[in-house]
Amino acid sequence: MKTMTTALTAGILTLAPLAAFADTNTDSSDPIVIPIHNWSSQIVMSNVVGQILETQGANVEYVTTDSQAVYESVRLGDVTMELEVWEGAFGASYRAAMEKGGIVDAGNHDAVTREDWWYPMWTKDACPGLPSWEALNECAALFATPETGEKGRYLDGPVDWLKHGQERVEALDMNFAVVNAGSAAALWAEIGAAEADKKPIVVFNWTPNFAEAVWPGEFVEFPEWEEGCDTDPAVGPNPDALYDCGNPATGYLKKAAWEGMEEKWPAAFATLQAVSFTNPQIAEMAKLVDVDELEPEEAAEVWLEANPDVWASWVK
């Protein structure tokens, strides 16, 4: 009996350090692959999280990918996580990947997202009734272009973003013609051109976004979003049409991860779940790159240095 106790004690004593060792170091040394897209807040956020993970001893790599195709890559484990899943923009791709399996929800950020018709501040000088949509409709002639004739022009996002601008114009009987830009860059180019002589312009835009820092502006206030506005004609002011209200003003901003991440890098996965940014934080990170012209990795360093109390709690 005594010998047995001794043996057990000895066993526990010898195993204990091993267990402790295993406990802190179970993360694989394979690189954690973080995808990077073509807008700055996401790039800086990815670098911030990457550098946090590196302080935990992880091996991190960044890969540039398409923001829609990335969900397929996460599913296959080619990339490990996605830090900005926008409800409006990527919800569909994300849900599709969820259905196929291989991707897991890693929680929401505090930040909310919103995407809708938007105008830069100078537009308000010409059309003071804004941000109400009725006022916008009355100023429609201000937004006319040679191609749209009498009607005002609303510049929608690329067709494949499926923003239903045309449907809304019809549902609310607005005096606007919808033109689809081919890319985000095309939207910015139009705003930039309009800025030169402060021409009124109304375009599709979203927040959080670098544009807020460059061109202060506001969203147009449409009839408030109600659940079912996109599925039930009865919902919203026009009883016969879908899309007769604004987009939800508080969409989620999610993190997603590859299914196998939790097992392979448990510590990193725990950190990822804890990570949560707010709208001002995201705007600040974007500003470091877009306005202060830092490189993303330097911007991440600066941000981490300036906000140690924010991220300290994410790391266990």
Binding site: W39, I43, V63, T65, A184, A211, D290
Partner: peptide, 20 residues
């Protein structure tokens, strides 16, 4: 750069995406 090739192309797209 559309399919994740890093370097000049990716940077160019990022720069164009933020209107620089």
């Amino acid at each position: 750069a559309f399919i994740g090739m890093p370097g000049l192309g990716a940077k160019l797209l990022a720069m164009m995406g933020s209107f620089k």
